[in-house]
Design a protein around this nucleic acid. Structure first.
Length: 478
RNA sequence: CGGAGUAUAGCUCAGUCUGGUAGAGCGCUACGUUCGGGACGUAGAGGUCGUAGGUUCGAAUCCUGUUACUCCGACCA
């Protein structure tokens, strides 16, 4: 059986992934190294993801704002761990004017900035500076801010969506009066991410706290949601940090308490990025292309009229009318009346992962029936139903597909988690080529022998087991 | 930042060794036959061969410089 994407997942997973992105028309590599152009279809998915996330962020009492792209270098210097974490991947703006010199446009040597700016790799510092002025009294707390922006981290090994030099994300930054509140909020946003991925992306997660070795630069606690891709590798899909008082002290975020004492506040930050899209694609898609959960599918249903010359107009109109009826049920519907051959249209939308395909031939137009095929189940799911039946079941069918996609993904994830008792067991498993997450006593990983395994098998500690933090999950990762 | 490679049509690449004035497949356009899991025929459009210089009667091809990108390693949402 010929597949739309070659090579297949089994043959070469990372090449399959690259070709999937091209075939589904999601994005392409940009002329600028490490950057990608997200194409309209890919961006439509991101917009739906973003809107769903934004609702949840606002429901958590957070306000959106927008801070500058450029950050004074000196700001980074104020938090020692933080600067160490980002210094080696910072892009720096040094000039403010171009000049034609010898016929070549270049930065004007006479327009050098005395204080250069860093293009934000993350905004803890500049938001911290603002918060130091905005937070005065206990009445100002908690203060919860979020922004949807692009950031830049100069990456040596970019991969589309998973790791690009520029990426889009949301970064939330909250301030609290007490550590208890701050830590509870970091955990709350962490749970929000896990729920979001389950309900919106139909993607299960392994949620837990990062070990000290893997923590965010400048955080006391980092809570992560890790996903397991179909090839068994881990993807860090979102993190929420309890920053303690590191940034409050570095940026002088202080408030006057009810007791009349001036004291440092406690901050958190939490983020998810377009990387989530990479995870979404690698969790659900198959050898024929993208498979999208209905909640974030730009088109949930595509209607393809199988036209012949003599009935083109009538059938197209009939299909448009059906599309309109489905739209009245709050479904996103595309009626593809473009001038392409029917099989080409089908493959186009199969590759783009549209959840439900509806085909209408001329006889079906007369009979009042349609042929429907679920993308997640493939052509085996093809069946003929009446138009009335379709209109009746379509909204529930979307919910059902969403649920079943999650259940299948969860089953795959569970099959990729292995308990190991000893480092020897771990090494045997890795040696045999076993993929996935390995659950092992955290204590067993704090030695040179484990460091050797990290080096040899390119594994890392993903997070502690939330149910029993004496265990840690270990895996190869993206 | 180390190691290796590539640069020729929108895309993937051949042509370079042995210098003689530009090719294939896919895609695109038109017409015809087609159209329910990837169609075929015919006719077309499309490239100063990354860039600057040199050698030569003549350079995609040889020489020198330069720039960009890709892959593999160390780092990472």
């Amino acid at each position: 059986m010929k597949t739309a994407i070659t090579p297949t997942r089994a043959e070469n997973f990372s090449e399959w992934y690259q070709n999937l992105i091209i075939a589904a028309d999601l994005a392409e590599n940009a002329p600028v190294r490490g950057c990608m152009t997200i194409k309209p279809y890919g961006w439509a998915i991101w917009e739906l993801m973003r809107d769903q996330m934004d609702k949840r962020i606002k429901a958590a009492g957070v306000q959106n704002a927008n801070f500058p792209l450029l950050i004074p270098i000196a700001y980074f210097n104020r938090e020692a761990e933080h600067v160490a974490g980002f210094a080696k991947e910072a892009a720096v703006v040094t000039h403010y004017r171009l000049k034609m010199i010898d016929g070549v446009l270049q930065p004007d040597p006479d327009a050098k900035l005395t204080d250069a700016y860093v293009i934000r790799p993350t905004s803890e510092t500049i938001i911290g500076e603002a918060m130091s002025r905005w937070v005065q009294s206990w009445r100002d707390l908690p203060m919860k801010l979020n922004q949807w922006v692009n950031v830049m981290r100069w990456e040596m090994r970019p991969r589309m969506f998973l790791r690009t030099s520029e990426f889009n994300w949301q970064e939330g930054h909250n301030v609290f009066a007490t550590h208890e509140e701050a830590n509870a909020d970091a955990k709350k946003m962490h749970k929000m991410y896990a729920d979001y991925m389950r309900d919106v992306l139909a993607a299960p997660v392994v949620a837990g706290e990062k070990t000290p070795e893997e923590r965010f630069a400048g955080a006391d606690h980092t809570y992560t949601v890790e996903q397991i891709m179909q090839d068994g590798k881990a993807l860090q899909a979102g993190t929420s940090h309890d920053l303690g008082q590191h940034f409050a002290k570095s940026f002088d975020i202080k408030y006057l308490g009810t007791d009349g004492k001036l004291q440092y506040a406690w901050t958190t930050s939490w983020g998810t990025s377009t990387r989530m899209m990479g995870g979404l694609f690698m969790i659900h898609s198959d050898d024929d292309g993208l498979v999208l959960p209905p909640v974030i599918a730009p088109y949930q249903i595509v209607i393809i009229p199988i036209v012949r010359e003599e009935n083109t107009d009538a059938l197209n109109k009939y299909a448009e009318d059906l599309g309109e009826k489905l739209r009245e049920l709050d479904l996103r519907v595309l009626v593809d009346t473009s001038d392409m051959r029917a099989p080409d249209k089908m493959w186009k939308w199969i590759k783009r992962g549209v959840p439900l395909r509806v085909e209408i031939g001329s006889r079906e137009m007369e009979n009042g029936t349609v042929t429907i095929t679920r993308r997640d189940l493939g052509k085996e799911s093809k069946q003929t139903v009446s138009v009335d039946e379709l209109l009746k079941i379509a909204p529930d069918l979307m919910k059902q597909m969403q649920r079943e996609m999650y259940e299948r993904a969860l089953a795959r994830q569970n099959a990729q988690i292995h308990d190991v008792e000893t480092l020897a067991d771990l090494e045997h498993a890795l040696e045999r080529g076993t993929t996935g997450f390995f659950r092992i006593k955290y204590d067993l990983t704090l030695n040179a022998e484990f460091d050797g395994l990290i080096e040899k098998y390119k594994i890392s500690r993903r997070c502690l087991d939330a149910n029993d933090p004496s265990f840690v999950y270990v895996a190869k990762s993206y």
